[in-house]
């Protein structure tokens, strides 16, 4: 019996780091945790998690889980929750957890705390609302509670040693009226936005898609950074894929360094980056709201400032 069940997030047999933020939350909740790994050919993910202190690692490894669909993943999670007896069912708050966790909550009559950013006294949870302009403390009135974890607000748990036992879990997926067709992956050599130490993001001030990359690519190179963008950019320029959007309705990041180039700083954008450790903003408008959250603001034309910034960063190292 563990108090918590963590559903690991993986992609192509690789563990997603956000899962370790979920482990961190589980450690804060206390009472011990089990892990569920779902997928096809995911033995390596289970092994990678063995040193983190889980009581047990359930593995639902089957071709039906090869491509993600909400209902089979829900079925596996419900089965693992029964097996482990967990009170809390926890996963990441990216599009993975957001998609199937509510179904888990519905299936077991649990309340769901979405985007949990911390715990509060008395078994309460903290979560943002209104694009992060309000932090709510909420109480779950149900026996079991489903939680999606905003990974940027938790450190990644460190290994504690030992070797958690692995147990195969068989799952009755039932009939599913949904079928996987295709996946068009965003190809990038760069680190993932939500996992990078440095994120450089560009806004509409960068004129058009090709110009965006001409400015942002060399900047990302010098910091080995992930590249983000505003909604204005991903909406209008085909060269910039949607999953680069940072903000309330895109990805939430909190890197060590965030460089905002030609971004005005709308509240919806700030919601996705304002908890970064150090924020740099380059904007030609001295009144741009982005300067209210920037540690270091430079009022300048990005097309001149960014190349010079790159050269001087190189020289300073």
């Amino acid at each position: 019996m563990a108090n918590i069940l963590i559903v690991a997030e993986q992609s192509g047999g690789e563990l997603k780091k956000g899962t370790l933020a979920a482990v961190q939350l589980a450690n804060q909740l206390g009472g011990g945790f089990d892990v569920l790994v779902v997928g096809s050919g995911v033995g390596g993910v289970a092994t990678a998690l063995q040193g983190y202190g889980a009581g047990k690692i359930y593995v639902a490894d089957d071709a039906v889980f090869g491509n993600y669909l909400a209902q089979p993943f829900k079925a596996a999670t419900v089965a693992a929750a029964e097996a482990s007896g967990a009170k809390f069912i926890v996963s990441t708050a990216g599009t993975f957890g957001k998609d199937f966790l509510p179904r888990v909550a519905g299936a077991i009559g649990a309340g769901m705390v979405a985007d949990c950013v911390g715990l509060a006294e008395g078994g309460l949870f903290k979560r943002p609302m209104y694009a992060g302009n309000i932090i709510a403390t909420v109480k779950a009135n149900t026996e079991r509670v489903v939680i999606s974890v905003r990974a940027s607000e938790f450190d990644n748990a460190s290994p504690v040693g030992g070797e958690s036992p692995i147990e195969a879990l068989s799952v009755d997926v039932g009939d599913v009226a949904a079928r996987f067709v295709s996946f068009d992956a965003t190809e990038s050599e760069r680190p993932e936005l939500t996992e990078a130490d440095v994120v450089v993001s560009g806004g509409r001030g960068l004129k058009d898609g090709p110009t965006f990359w001409n400015v942002m690519n060399p900047l990302a190179d010098v910091f080995s950074a992930a590249v983000g963008a505003t909604r204005a950019v991903v909406d209008s320029w085909d060269e910039v894929p949607n999953d680069m959007q940072v903000g309330q309705t895109g990805k939430v990041v909190a890197p060590k360094l965030y460089v905002a180039v030609a971004i005005s700083g709308a509240i919806q954008h700030l919601a996705g980056m304002k908890n970064s450790k150090t924020i740099v903003a380059i904007n030609k408008d001295a009144e741009a709201p982005i300067f209210q959250v920037a540690d270091y603001g430079l009022v300048a034309d990005a097309f001149q400032a960014v190349p010079e910034f790159i050269e001087k960063v190189k020289a300073a190292r």
Binding site: V113, I134, T137, N141, V293, Y296, G297, V299, F309
Partner: peptide
């Protein structure tokens, strides 16, 4: 209700930063 609001707060505002006068100053501060 399965999830009940207990209390609300505004997140602590980020401490206002500085405007730098040049890229040299920016790199130096970073």
């Amino acid at each position: 209700l399965k999830i009940e609001l207990v209390s609300l707060e505004e997140p602590s505002a980020r401490q206002a930063g500085v405007k730098v006068g040049s890229i040299d100053e920016l790199v130096d501060k970073l």
